[in-house]
Design a protein around this nucleic acid. Structure first.
Lengths: 239, 239
DNA sequence: ATTGACAAGTATACGGCGTACACCTAGCGT
DNA sequence: ACGCTAGGTGTACGCCGTATACTTGTCAAT
């Protein structure tokens, strides 16, 4: 009976179950809250049990990236290269935005899993299918960089008030003082921050990240197209 | 005498000394080896002594970024905007390349110190001085993203052999097997990897990171220039 | 010269982390 | 019936950041 009860109650661990739980935990509690111990607890298991399914925490993170990659749509078929690339990147971005930990984890990984290599391979394939030379494709991939994953370093996401000021909200007079100091010390930041702010707040929610992302993406894609049309090559002459 | 000896032997700690030592330690031993305890040891002091000069490890890292920023050249005066931007970015890149920890630390920071804000402000100033609209400048800064700091996510820096394969060097027959499997599973990666490899190795030291960086940078700068010339605006029409 | 405030450095301890290692145990092919 | 093995356990180690409470060395005002 005890065996029976336990058998029905507890489905055995597996690499997949571990990875899925890790993703869920990181989604909910943030990547900094993802520890082997907490993950084990969530799975109703002792910490060391995880090590029967992943070699160590690094491999756990690699596995989480694989989960992420599996959520990216395959390339659309029969589209022009630029549409294909654009859609794929935006699909990756959607996956990324669903998982707040993804950017940080992707940035920290060096060794590529088969899933990651597969994604990169098929990504490269879109340019080659579009008639790009291997040479140009190579450089174009570098130029895309992390934009291939649908993200870039965000510059202005900070907490508004200048410096490492303070966590507390400020009264209106203090706000004005901060504003005045900002205007004096960082006049240019203030200009771009206010031009796009709909609220009266300094550096409010004025930045539409999605717009910024697509702006830069399209700028690059247009540049790629131009180079492709003029048969650009990194080694201009061959004797 | 004892006092005298100790006074001469030990110059007192200071925030600057702490930050400088932290930078040196991270330079030499890698960022993952930088702990408060090790840093204290290097300074001949008990760990908690550091906390009289930095609030916590986060602030230590922020301070290290400030050191980094201080190594970036100021903008050249009297140059065209694109030359100014280009030179400044490459100067930042040089500073970055001197400190292997810089990329990772910059990526992880959210709150900007005054030094960082100052750099951004003067960076923005280069575009404005070049006649860019505030609107375009804003989007252009986003498009640059981390390239402002002289880096991008490196894509191909991995350890050659596919997958999370193994740490050991392989014999020639094993190498060939890996190669064959790569060719089968990741044909496109293999193409771009081999076209730029001077050695017979797969994904050898074929990538000239500096070239790739400048390639993408110049592509973006050219795009910026085009938009500027045609008076691009994110809000095309005004009633 | 004495004192006493204050800043700099110390000592100890806590809770958390990743994970090495030895152990148990259930289920299965023989 | 038996032993192998895969999966799960218990304990322990060394590291980490840092809270708290202490000593000590310096110097200004008395």
């Amino acid at each position: 009976m005890t065996q029976q009860a336990e058998r029905t109650r507890r489905i055995p661990l597996s690499r997949d179950r571990v990875l899925t739980a890790a993703v869920a935990l990181a989604d909910e509690a943030g990547i900094e809250a993802l520890s082997m111990r907490r993950l084990a607890q969530r799975l109703g298991v002792v910490p060391m049990a995880l090590y029967k399914h992943v070699a160590n925490k690094e491999e756990l993170l690699d596995g989480m990236v694989d989960v992420l990659v599996s959520e990216i749509d395959p390339p659309v078929r029969g589209a022009a290269w630029n549409d294909a690339v654009r859609l794929r990147v935006l699909s990756a971005r959607n996956a990324l935005l669903r998982h707040s930990w993804a950017r940080q984890v992707l940035e920290s990984r060096n060794n590529k899993s088969p899933a990651v290599l597969g994604y990169m391979d098929s990504f490269i394939g879109m340019f080659l299918a579009g008639g790009f030379s291997i040479d140009l494709t190579h450089h174009v991939m570098h130029a895309l960089g992390s934009r291939m994953w649908g993200f870039t370093q965000e510059l202005f996401q900070d907490s508004g008030g200048g410096a490492a000021a303070g966590p507390a909200d400020l009264g209106p007079e203090a706000r004005a003082a901060v504003f005045r100091e900002m205007a004096e010390r960082y006049p240019n930041i203030l200009k771009v921050a206010t031009v796009s702010a709909h609220e009266d707040s300094v550096a409010g929610q004025g930045c539409d990240d999605q717009f910024e992302f697509e702006f830069a993406l399209d700028l690059l894609l247009a540049g790629f197209e131009r180079l492709h049309r003029q048969h650009w090559s990194s080694t201009p002459a061959k004797p």
